[in-house]
Amino acid sequence: MKKTLLFTYGFLILLTISTALISNLVAVSGLAVGLIMGLSMLKFFLVSFQFMELKKANSFWKGSLIFVLGVIVLVLISLK
């Protein structure tokens, strides 16, 4: 269990560094925004399912979290 948490934590750090690199190296474009939003979604899912133990929750809560996050990301991308 502890090994899985450490692996997830390390992966979150790697995703955060890659997000910072993308935002600094790539000019603001639709591709950069899409990549950053995709990485942010992945980080959100990792935190919620691994550290908040949503993986043990009812299917309704899992589905509603995925649906609401998808709507939020689609709205934010469409504003760009």
Rank of each mutant, 00 (worst) to 15 (best):
Asn58Leu: 09
Gly10Gln: 02
Leu46Phe: 11
Met37Asp: 15
Gly34Asp: 12
Asn24Ile: 01
Phe45Gly: 00
Ala32Gln: 13
Thr4Trp: 14
Thr19His: 01
Thr16Ile: 08
Asn24Met: 09
Leu6Asp: 10
Gly63Thr: 04
Ala27Glu: 06
Thr19Gly: 04
Ser78Thr: 05
Leu5Trp: 10
Trp61His: 12
Leu65Glu: 10
Ser40Ala: 15
Leu39Trp: 10
Leu42Arg: 02
Asn58Lys: 14
Val33Lys: 07
Thr19Tyr: 04
Leu46Tyr: 06
Asn24Tyr: 09
Met37Cys: 15
Val47Leu: 11
Ile22Ala: 00
Gly70Cys: 03
Ile22Lys: 00
Phe7Lys: 08
Leu31Met: 11
Leu35Cys: 14
Ser40Arg: 13
Ile22Tyr: 01
Leu25Asp: 03
Val68Ala: 11
Met41Asn: 11
Ala20Met: 09
Phe51His: 02
Leu79Arg: 11
Val33Gln: 14
Ile77Asn: 13
Ile66Ala: 10
Ser64Ala: 13
Leu42Ile: 09
Leu54Gly: 01
Lys3Asn: 15
Gly38Tyr: 05
Ile77Thr: 09
Val75Leu: 08
Ala27Tyr: 02
Tyr9His: 02
Leu54Val: 00
Leu5Pro: 00
Ser78Ala: 13
Leu54Ala: 02
Gly63Leu: 09
Phe49Trp: 13
Asn24Trp: 07
Met37Arg: 12
Leu76Thr: 06
Val47Phe: 08
Lys2Glu: 11
Ile22His: 02
Thr4Cys: 09
Met37Gly: 10
Val68Ser: 13
Val75Lys: 04
Ala57Ile: 01
Val28Ser: 05
Leu69Thr: 08
Leu54Thr: 03
Phe67Met: 13
Ser40Asp: 14
Gly63Lys: 09
Leu54His: 00
Gly34Phe: 12
Leu25Glu: 06
Lys43Thr: 10
Phe67Leu: 15
Ala32Lys: 05
Ala57Tyr: 12
Gly70His: 05
Ser40Phe: 15
Ile17Phe: 06
Thr16Phe: 09
Lys43Arg: 15
Ala32Gly: 05
Phe60Trp: 09
Phe67Cys: 10
Val33Pro: 02
Val71Asn: 04
Ala27Ser: 08
Lys62Ser: 02
Lys62Glu: 03
Lys80Phe: 14
Leu5Asp: 10
Gln50Phe: 11
Phe11Gly: 05
Leu25Tyr: 08
Leu5Ala: 13
Phe67Ser: 10
Phe51Arg: 05
Met37Ala: 15
